Simulated scan of single mutants.
Amino acid sequence: MSQIIIDQLTHAQKVRILYKTILRLHRGLPEELRDLGDKYARDEFRRHLQCSPMEAQLFMTEWAKYAVTITSQLGLKGKAMGTIGGELDSNTVEMLKEDQVIQLYELMLAAKGLEGDTITAKDIHNSK
């Protein structure tokens, strides 16, 4: 899409395009990761429906980076070419709020098939 066309879109249209792009990219993931990724993206996009303009800009930027990362990790035919995902650097983890750390931990449990485990304050402090 050319920059002129993108500039003419409303914020809601840009969000919808990004969301649909992410779901389309998830089709190239293994089934269990696709399901997890689709649920997570759906939840995050819904959770940010009423966020402030500054939060919305950060949200869109981070999800666009995610889309670029996933695109680079999928082959031309849309199938994973090796490792999917990447390591979080310690600076990024340090900047997370406590509820974000919990959410990240729960996402890790779900990705490892350990859903149902609980997180405690001790788990959060041990991970730092």
Rank of each mutant, 00 (worst) to 15 (best):
L58N: 04
K122S: 11
P30L: 13
Q8I: 02
S90P: 00
T21M: 06
E32H: 14
I119Q: 02
D123H: 13
Q50M: 11
C51A: 11
S72F: 04
L33H: 07
M108A: 12
T118Q: 10
W63A: 00
Y66A: 01
D7C: 01
Q50R: 14
L88P: 00
R27K: 12
K97H: 12
P53G: 03
L88E: 02
A64E: 03
E32W: 12
R34I: 05
T10K: 15
D117R: 15
A121E: 15
Y105V: 05
K128N: 05
S52F: 10
D7E: 10
T61G: 04
R47M: 06
I5S: 08
L104I: 03
G86T: 09
A121M: 13
A56T: 08
G78S: 14
R42N: 08
H125A: 12
M60A: 04
S127M: 08
N126H: 13
V15H: 02
T10E: 12
A110D: 13
F59N: 01
S90M: 00
N126I: 05
K14V: 03
R24I: 03
R16I: 07
L23Q: 12
M108V: 09
E94V: 00
T92A: 02
P30T: 09
G28E: 06
K20Y: 07
S52I: 05
A110I: 03
N126Q: 13
D38H: 04
D38V: 14
M81L: 15
I70C: 11
T118D: 07
G78K: 13
G113D: 15
A12K: 15
H48S: 07
S52T: 14
L58S: 08
P30F: 13
A111G: 14
V101E: 01
K77D: 15
S72T: 11
S127T: 06
I17A: 10
